[in-house]
Every structure is written in structure tokens, then in C-alpha cells.
Nucleic acid binder design. Structure first.
Lengths: 233, 233
DNA sequence: CGTCCAATTGAAACAAGTCAATCTATGTGG
DNA sequence: CCACATAGATTGACTTGTTTCAATTGGACG
């Protein structure tokens, strides 16, 4: 893990972060220790039930938030993309509620929770920004509940892959650092089952995969294939 | 649906609500139209994708928040207990994100979202209270993701029943207005499967049920029974 | 007493998980 | 450059978990 002092004013992320809308003076007077951090794939940034000291903004790379069960199963609670804020459950609780693990080499911006809390009291724009992310996380979590509770494996996988690609829609092929096991832990499936369904999709030309990238030629087709509960009477 | 003007100062819920910590003067100057509402079992309080106008505090009774899928399945996203605030996703979005349906006869306190938003700007205590509920909802949602993604039917049901009873721990037997179908829609299972597992639990004396009440003599035993993935080598 | 709806049960079909073997690609050290 | 070790992906055969469909039971209520 490497660390350095950043120049927040020049940050490319700035207008997509919780600091969006703050003036340059505000930024200069943050009075918070901010660190740029780089970690390699597989690094655990913090552990479930670690005392929470920092929140992070993901500047580049991929992160999974994981909860582990007594029975040996792990569940990925959330997957993070460029620009996402995480670890902020520490604003309300003393401990982190999941482990954060890098899927790829990753650039992070580390923020002190205590300072973040104080700032959000002082700067309404920041408070709103944090609130908005909290709310977005809830919405996504509720959508996941529906996916996990009401859909079958192939439909879950299809909608997930389509959403993933939408998040990278500017590119023809989306970077895809997830292993079959990651997919399984995210979707509540065994790695073998994920592998079989992926292989099916590929055989049917609904999906292509090379060297850590995927491409879905016709998302609608993939969704139709997997989600139709064929009540086509 | 019946409605009346309440006396908020006398409200038994007050110190458990988002108005906790406000002075009597604050309460008198809320400047918000508050209505006490009573609805009967089965009433839909609002529909998914209805324009959001109100949030509600549940004073008495039970509510389910439901999302419906194209394939005909419904998923209960959250179950609400006495004191819970709901409908507040309308603070951030124009529409409700789920339908709210009464499980029993229910007393509600209806709050105007616009006014609530304005008040939370003015009164830090209230802002914090709303924030806290949002955060609690996220935590619960993430726990549900783990349940749905990583556990089998009997374990899901067992942990749910135990948590339900803990919420009513003062009483020997907890009120239980959920049908087998409700349980299925909450846990992502068919009603028949729920019925079978419940019957099993009852046959083994892990669970008793009479007239809309349930009792779990030894919660640990029930959990042990259902959650042990018997890696007991 | 008959009606209605929820709960239960059984049998069969289907979905998903497990275990074990093989097949890759990739990287390592000789 | 090759032989080998490693980790992920794939596949097959089998087992277990869950749903579906259909029939039956049971209770609440007019």
C-alpha cells in the first residue's frame, strides 16, 4: 500500500465526489487529512468489524464489500465503481459492517470519518451529498433483495451483466475483473452454476469475453432470454 | 380510511419518533399538516410509482413494503413494526419505490414530505433522526441480502422467526399477522415450501402457533437446528 | 350448512449445489 | 525454452433443495 498527500483542488474526481459544489476556499479549509492510496488486487482495505476510522472514495479500479457467514459462505453486499464512496457506515457505527477488498489495482482517496462528520455539520452541500449516497445505497440494496428473492439464476446473472455493461457504456467492451466465484458470491450461486450459465450465454452468442473484458452485443436479447418466465399464453 | 387531527404533544409515540428531542415549542411550531389515519387489514396505503406526497409513522399494527415484478412474483422488501417511519424515500425521489400494504388494522401518522424536508433543514435533531432511520434501513437491507444470498430456506425462516419474536420479546407469544404467502414473498420462497418448513418446526416442538400468535420456546435451539451447515467434522 | 380462503400434504418436475475430473492460461524456476 | 506448479474455468454425474400442480383439510364467517 502506497500513500501520498494529494492536491484536492486538481482532483479529477472532484465534481463527482461528495466535495462537488464546494468552492476552492472551502476545499482549502477542509482541515482534514486526506491521503491518496494505491493498493493491489486482492488487498483487504478494511475488515468487517474493524473499528471504523476512514471512509474512501474509489478513484480507479474495483472494490467488493463482503460479509462472511459462520457456515463458510461469503456474500458480496455491494460492488463499487469509479466515484463511489464507501466505508461511510462508520459515520453511524463504530465498526465497519463489511470487508472491503480490491478486485484490481485500485486508487483510493482516504478520508477521516471524524473530520467528515464535522464537515458535514458545517457544509450543507456536503451533508446533502453524503445523504444522497446513503439513499442510493439503500435503493440499490432493495433492488438486490428483489433480484435475490424473486428471480432465478439465469435471470439474476443476465440483469447483473447488463447493468454492469451499462455502467461502462462508453466503451465497446467493459472491463470485467470478477471471477466466477465473485459472481457467485454476489448473486447467491455456486461458482459452477455461474460458470455453466455464462458458458450457455456465450454459446448462444449473447455474450463475449476476452482477457478480463466482456461485451453484450444486444442487451435486450440477453434480458429477454433469461427473464421471460414464458407465461406467453 | 379514517382521518383526524392529532394532538402531537400528547402522542405516546413522540419520543420514539423522528420528533424525539424536540421541545414542546418546536412541536407547536411545526407548521405541518399532520393526520392520524386508521386503515383496515389489506389496505394499500400507497402504490409503487405513485407520486410521493407523504411519509408515515406506524403507531400501531403491521405494514409490508412490496415490489412487484413483471414475472408475477412479488417481493416484500421490508416489514414494519410499531414506531417505524416509512415512505421517506419520497424525500429524494418523486415516486414511491414500493407499495405499502397494511397487514392488520393499523394506526398511522401521516406527515407531509415537503414540510418534513423543510423541517429537517431547520432542526438538526430531526435531520439526524431521519438520517439514522435511513441508515438503519440500509443496514437491515444488507442483512437481508446476506440472508437471501447465502442461506437455505430453513435457515432463513428460522432466523427471521427468531428476530420477529425478539422484536416482541416482552410478551410470551408474539403477534404474527403474516400468512404463509407473506413469509414466502419476504424470504423468496414458495408458500408451499414455507408451509412445509413451518410444519416441520412445529412437529419438532421448536415453534408454536395459535390464532395469529407464535411462540419460540428456545430460539437458540431453533437456530441451531436450521443454521448448522453441519461441518461438524 | 355451505362458502371461501389459507394451510397442509403428496408426487413429480425442475433448479441448483456438490464432488470430482479435466482443461485452460499463466507464471516460475531450472 | 521447457517442465512444472498453480489457480481459475469448464464439464459431467449425481444429490439435494425447491417449485409446481393438484388434491385435501381446516377454520372463519355469513
Amino acid at each position: 500500500m502506497s500513500t501520498k498527500q494529494p492536491d484536492c483542488l486538481q482532483c479529477a474526481m472532484r465534481e463527482h465526489s461528495i466535495f462537488a459544489g464546494l468552492s476552492s476556499e472551502d476545499i482549502c479549509q477542509l482541515g482534514m487529512d486526506v491521503h491518496d492510496i494505491h493498493v493491489t488486487a486482492g488487498t483487504t482495505i478494511y475488515h468487517e468489524s474493524d473499528p471504523a476510522q476512514y471512509a474512501y472514495t474509489l478513484r480507479q479500479g474495483g472494490i467488493k464489500l463482503v460479509k462472511s457467514l459462520a457456515n463458510g459462505h461469503a456474500q458480496i453486499v455491494r460492488l463499487l465503481h469509479r466515484g463511489d464512496l464507501f466505508g461511510f457506515e462508520g459515520l453511524r457505527s463504530d465498526q465497519h459492517r463489511h470487508s472491503a477488498i480490491a478486485l484490481t489495482g485500485t486508487d483510493l482517496c482516504r478520508l477521516e470519518l471524524r473530520a467528515l462528520d464535522a464537515l458535514s455539520q458545517r457544509l450543507p452541500a456536503m451533508r446533502e451529498a453524503i445523504f444522497a449516497r446513503w439513499q442510493q445505497a439503500l435503493q440499490e440494496a432493495e433492488d438486490r433483495i428483489v433480484e435475490l428473492g424473486a428471480k432465478k439464476a439465469d435471470a439474476r446473472l443476465a440483469t447483473f451483466l447488463c447493468q454492469w455493461c451499462i455502467a461502462y457504456r462508453q466503451q465497446r467492451a467493459a472491463p470485467f475483473p470478477l471471477t466466477r466465484r465473485d459472481l457467485g458470491e454476489f448473486l447467491g450461486l455456486s461458482t459452477e452454476h455461474v460458470s455453466r450459465i455464462m458458458a450457455d450465454f456465450k454459446r448462444q452468442g449473447l455474450l463475449h469475453e476476452h482477457k478480463g473484458q466482456i461485451e453484450i452485443p444486444e442487451p435486450q436479447k440477453l434480458l429477454r432470454h433469461a427473464c421471460s418466465d414464458d407465461t406467453s399464453a
